[in-house]
């Protein structure tokens, strides 16, 4: 079975407003406002309109190995919120 892949909406489908301690993300397709930590917009940017595996995401961030479970947990939360699609 092939590895799980993730995809976020294209960049123009999101409106991002940094508000001091958090970032507000308006998702145009759903009309839902998401409140996220400051690192999430970068993750959404990497995944914008392209399917990537967790390996590829880590490579894009030049992340050192070992913190895979935190990344997967974050992606799972974004999937449940509808901001990221799992395929």
């Amino acid at each position: 079975m092939s590895a799980t892949r993730y995809r976020a909406p294209p960049a123009d489908a999101l409106v991002i407003a940094p508000l001091d301690e958090i970032v507000a993300v308006f998702h145009r397709a759903s009309g839902i406002t998401h409140l996220v930590g400051p690192e999430i917009p970068d993750l959404l940017d990497v995944l914008a309109a392209q399917w990537l595996t967790a390996d590829a995401i880590e490579a894009a961030f030049e992340q050192v190995e070992g913190d895979r479970s935190a990344l997967i947990a974050t992606l799972d939360e974004l999937v449940a919120a509808g901001l990221v699609e799992r395929g």
Partner: peptide, 11 residues
Amino acid sequence: EGRRQALWEAE
């Protein structure tokens, strides 16, 4: 807005 929400719910 209603349309947007309805289509999203379908998705």
